[in-house]
Write a protein that binds this DNA or RNA. Structure first.
Length: 762
DNA sequence: CTTAAGAGGGTTTTT
DNA sequence: CCCTCTTAAG
C-alpha cells in the first residue's frame, strides 16, 4: 500500500514520531512545529501501516474545536477510514462512557449535565441551605474549591480537614452539594471525569473491556492535563495500551485551573521505555520572531528544553511602542491596522492579543470609530445565554422532574407569582425531607399548609404545565415521570396559563414530537416568548431571535451513532450537547474581521500580524503573579505563546499610564519586554512627543532613579526618614501633583506627594 | 413584581 | 471606571 502521503511532507523529527515502532512516546512539539499534523499522520500510520483497526484507537483533545479539526483532517488523510475511531474531548468521552454504563457508574439513566453557571447557582443554594454566611463562603469560591478537589480525584469523605474550620465547612458544602446533585440526577463537568475514573476503578470488567479495545491512546495538549485526566489515562492504558502524547511544556498556561505540567515528566517515569521526540522546526514565524520568543522563554527554569528554529527568513524587526496611555495605545494599534489594510492586508489577518478581557474596550471603540469590522472572542456563547438556558430548563424538567437546577430556573421565568417566599417553603421542605424541589412541591400541595391559596395555585399551575408539556412531547411518558397524575392533580388545571393549542397534525398517538417542535412548544407554552417579546430592556429583540435560533439549531440537530448506541433519546442527546458544546460566540468567523482575544484564547492560533498589547508590570505579568516565581513563569509562557502567534509581523505596546479600576495608574514596561534582545526591536516614536522612551532592555538593566526621573516606577524600593523602608505600589497624577502609594514595612501603606516626601530610592 | 440605588469586585477558560 | 448582584423602596 502506498503510504507516501503520510510521510512525504514531513521533516525528520516529524517522521520519526509518525513512523515510530510500538511503544510509548512523548512528542514535545514547539509552537508552530506541526503538532496536529504529527498526531493525525500517526493515526494514519497506525491504521494503514500497522493495520490497527480504527476502533482500537482513542484520540483525546481538550476542546471540541480541536477534536472537530482532528476528525476533519483524519477524514482527508484516510478517506472512509475513520469509522469506529474515537476522537473526542476528555469530557465528551467520559460522558459517553457514563451514558453507556450509567448503572455501573451509579447514575440515573436520565442524568443531565450541569454547566459552570448551573453549578454555581446550585452551590449558592447549598451554602444558603446550610445556613452559612455567603460573605464568608462565597459560592464562587466554594464551587472553585469543589472543582479543584474533584480534579484531584477527591471525594468529600477523603479530604483531611485537620480541624481547620474553614476547610471543614468547605468539605461540608462539598458533601451537601454532592447530595443535591445526586438527588437531582445532575453531574457537573469535573464529575464527568471523576465518575469515569471511578468507573475504571470500581468496575474491573468494564475497565478491562476498554483496555482491550483502546490499545492505542493519543493525547493532544498533554501539558494541560490535570491530575484526574492523567490518572484516567494511566489506568486505561494499563499494561497493554500504547500511549502517544503530544504537548509543549513551554505552552502550559492553565496551571491556575489545575493543569499539571509535571504530568509531562511524570509520563516519562510512569510509562516504561517512553521515548521523547522533539519537534523544533517552526513553520510559522520569521526568524526574528522566533529569536524573541526563545530569548523570553529561556529565562524559565525546569524546562524540558527546546529551541525553535526556522529555515525561513529573518523578517522584520519587532516594533515596540511606548504609548502615553491606554487610549494612545489603542489609537496607535488601530492606525497600524488601517495602514496594513490600506497597503495590502486583510482585517482578518490582524490580531490584538491582551492579558485580560477588560482591555478590549479601548480597541473596540477605536475600531468602531474607523468602521473596521472586528470580532471579540470569548464572552457568552450561544447555549450560555440566559434566554436559551431558560428555554432549555423547561425541556430539562420534562426529561427529569428532579432536576432542581432546571426547576429553580424555570419556576418563575417568566414571572408567574412564585416568588422567593414560596420557593423558600419548597426549599426547606426539599432539604428536610431530602427530596427534589419537584417532590417538595407535590408534597406541599397535597399535605402541606404553608402556602397561601394564590401561591398554591401558581405552583400547581407550574407543575401541571410541565406535565402537560411532557405529555405533548411524548404521549406515553416513561413510568414514574407523570407524578402529578399519580398524586391526583388534575391534568388540565393550569390557571395561570392558557391551555395548549392543538398540536399541528392533530393526534400523534405514541409519536414523539420532533425536537424542534418540542422546543418551540416549550418556548410558547411557558410564556417565555411572550415575556421576552414584551421585555422592556434593551436587547429584547435579539433574545427573541436567539429563541428562534434555538428552534433552528434543534431542527438541524442530529444524534451521533454514539448517542444512539448509548440509548439516548433525542432530547437528552440535545441537552447534553448544549452543555458540553456551548457553541460559538457571536460573530461570523468567515467575516473579514480584526480578531481580538486574550492570550489564553489565542493558543493554537496564528496570524500574519499580531499586536501584543498592555505589556506592563502589574498587568502582564499580572499583579497577582509577580510575587510567586511559579506563577510568574506561567505568565512568561503566556508571553511566549503570544509572541509565537505572529507569522510575519509583531508589534508590542505598553502604556505608561493606564486607567485601571477607575484610577490612573503608572506602570513600568513589562519585564518580558526587557527579555527581548534590543537588537531585534524597532522602537516606534510617538507621533507627538509626549513621553520619555522607557522601553526595551534599558529599564531592565537600570531602573530609572527616583530623584531626577519622576514619576517613579512601581515596585521601586524606597526609604523615608520617618516611615522607614517600603515599596512603591501605585501612583496617581503627574508632575508636581504626583502622589505615590508606598507600602512601608513597619508603617503600613501611605499616600505621599512625591515632590515633598523625602524618599530615597534603594 | 418592578425599578432604582448601593455594595462589592475586577486575571486568564473549557468542558 | 464598569459590571453584576443584592437590597430597599414603590
Amino acid at each position: 500500500m502506498d503510504v507516501s502521503h503520510l510521510i512525504d511532507s514531513l521533516n525528520d523529527a516529524q517522521r520519526e514520531a509518525v513512523c515510530a515502532p510500538p511503544g510509548h512516546y512523548l512528542v514535545l512539539a514547539g509552537a508552530g512545529s506541526g503538532k496536529t499534523r504529527v498526531l493525525t499522520h500517526r493515526i494514519g500510520w497506525l491504521n494503514q501501516v500497522e493495520h490497527v483497526p480504527p476502533w482500537a484507537i482513542l484520540a483525546v483533545t481538550f476542546t471540541n474545536k480541536a477534536s472537530g479539526e482532528m476528525r476533519a483532517r483524519l477524514e482527508q488523510l484516510i478517506p472512509g477510514g475513520t469509522q469506529g475511531l474515537t476522537v473526542g474531548t476528555f469530557h465528551g468521552i467520559a460522558h459517553r462512557l457514563l451514558r453507556r454504563h450509567w448503572r455501573e457508574a451509579g447514575l440515573p439513566e436520565s442524568f443531565q449535565i450541569l454547566d459552570a453557571d448551573d453549578q454555581q447557582r446550585l452551590v449558592k443554594r447549598v451554602v444558603a441551605g446550610l445556613g452559612l454566611d455567603e460573605a464568608r463562603f462565597p459560592p464562587r469560591q466554594a464551587a472553585w474549591q469543589i472543582n479543584s478537589w474533584k480534579d484531584e480525584g477527591k471525594r468529600a469523605e477523603n479530604i483531611e480537614h485537620g480541624q481547620h474550620p474553614v476547610t471543614r465547612t468547605l468539605v461540608q458544602i462539598y458533601q451537601a452539594y454532592e447530595d443535591a446533585c445526586r438527588r437531582a440526577g445532575l453531574v457537573d463537568f469535573a464529575e464527568l471525569l471523576l465518575r469515569a475514573h471511578e468507573l475504571w476503578l470500581k468496575q474491573p470488567a468494564i475497565l478491562e473491556h476498554y483496555q482491550q479495545r483502546w490499545r492505542y491512546l493519543l493525547i493532544d495538549e498533554f501539558q494541560d492535563t490535570n491530575a484526574l485526566q492523567y490518572a484516567w489515562i494511566r489506568v486505561l492504558a494499563g499494561s497493554t495500551g500504547q500511549v502517544f502524547v503530544v504537548g509543549d511544556d513551554d505552552q502550559a498556561i492553565y496551571g491556575w485551573r489545575g493543569a499539571k505540567v509535571e504530568n509531562v515528566q511524570q509520563f516519562l517515569r510512569d510509562f516504561p521505555g517512553a521515548r521523547t521526540i522533539k519537534l523544533e522546526q517552526n513553520y510559522r514565524s520569521t526568524s526574528n520572531i522566533l529569536k524573541a520568543a526563545n530569548s523570553v522563554i529561556e529565562r524559565n527554569g525546569g524546562r524540558l528544553g527546546k529551541q525553535l528554529w526556522t529555515a525561513g527568513e529573518e523578517g522584520e524587526r519587532i516594533a515596540v511602542y511606548a504609548a502615553y496611555n491606554e487610549q494612545d495605545e489603542a489609537r496607535f494599534v488601530i492606525e497600524r491596522i488601517r495602514e496594513y489594510i490600506a497597503e495590502h492586508g486583510e482585517a482578518k489577518d490582524c490580531a490584538i492579543l491582551y492579558r485580560s478581557n477588560a482591555q478590549s474596550r479601548n480597541f473596540e471603540e477605536q475600531l468602531i470609530q474607523h468602521d473596521i469590522p472586528y470580532r471579540v472572542y470569548g464572552g457568552l456563547r450561544f447555549f450560555e445565554r440566559a434566554e436559551i438556558k431558560d428555554a432549555l430548563s423547561y425541556l430539562r424538567l420534562t426529561a427529569n422532574r428532579h432536576d432542581d437546577a432546571a426547576f429553580e430556573r424555570a419556576v418563575n421565568t417568566p414571572p408567574r407569582g412564585i416568588g422567593d417566599r414560596t420557593l423558600d417553603v419548597l426549599r426547606r421542605r426539599a432539604r428536610n425531607e431530602r427530596m427534589s424541589m419537584w417532590e417538595a412541591a407535590l408534597s406541599e400541595l397535597s399535605m402541606g399548609n404553608e402556602l397561601a391559596g394564590r401561591a398554591k395555585n401558581a405552583v400547581k399551575g407550574f407543575l401541571s404545565m410541565i406535565d402537560e408539556m411532557a405529555h405533548a412531547f411524548a404521549p406515553s411518558p416513561p413510568r414514574g415521570e407523570g407524578w402529578s397524575e399519580e398524586l391526583g392533580l388534575p391534568k388540565d388545571s393550569a390557571p395561570d396559563n392558557p391551555s395548549p393549542n392543538p398540536l399541528p397534525g392533530g393526534e400523534r398517538a405514541n409519536a414523539v414530537l420532533p425536537l424542534a417542535e418540542q422546543i418551540d412548544h416549550a418556548i410558547v407554552q411557558s410564556g417565555l416568548r411572550e415575556f421576552y417579546e414584551k421585555d422592556s430592556r434593551g436587547n429584547a429583540e435579539s433574545r427573541v431571535e436567539n429563541l428562534d435560533e434555538l428552534v433552528n439549531v434543534a431542527s438541524r440537530f442530529e444524534m451521533t451513532p454514539d448517542d444512539i448506541e448509548a440509548g439516548l433519546n433525542e432530547l437528552s442527546a440535545f441537552l447534553s450537547h448544549a452543555a458540553l458544546e456551548a457553541g460559538e460566540g457571536q460573530g461570523e468567523s468567515w467575516d473579514n474581521c480584526v480578531q481580538l482575544m486574550t492570550l489564553h484564547s489565542a493558543k493554537g492560533l496564528e496570524f500574519p500580524l499580531v499586536f501584543l498589547v498592555g505589556l506592563e508590570e502589574g498587568l502582564f505579568p499580572s499583579q497577582r503573579s509577580i510575587e510567586d516565581e511559579g506563577r510568574l513563569e506561567e505568565e512568561r509562557r503566556l508571553a511566549y505563546v503570544g509572541i509565537t502567534r505572529a507569522r510575519e509581523r509583531l508589534v508590542i505596546s505598553h502604556a505608561e499610564s493606564r486607567r485601571m479600576h477607575g484610577s490612573e495608574m503608572l506602570a513600568r514596561p513589562s519585564r518580558f519586554l526587557g527579555e527581548v534582545p534590543p537588537s531585534l526591536v524597532d522602537e516606534v516614536r510617538p507621533r507627538v512627543q509626549v513621553s520619555r522612551p522607557l522601553y526595551a532592555g534599558r529599564f531592565a538593566a537600570t531602573p530609572p532613579s527616583l530623584k531626577e526621573d519622576l514619576p517613579v516606577k512601581l515596585g521601586q524600593r524606597v526609604s523615608h526618614p520617618s516611615f522607614g523602608e517600603g515599596v512603591v505600589v501605585s501612583a496617581e497624577g503627574s508632575g508636581a501633583h504626583t502622589r505615590l502609594q508606598v507600602n512601608f514595612e513597619s508603617a503600613g501603606s501611605k499616600w505621599l506627594v512625591a515632590a515633598y516626601a523625602k524618599l530615597t530610592p534603594l
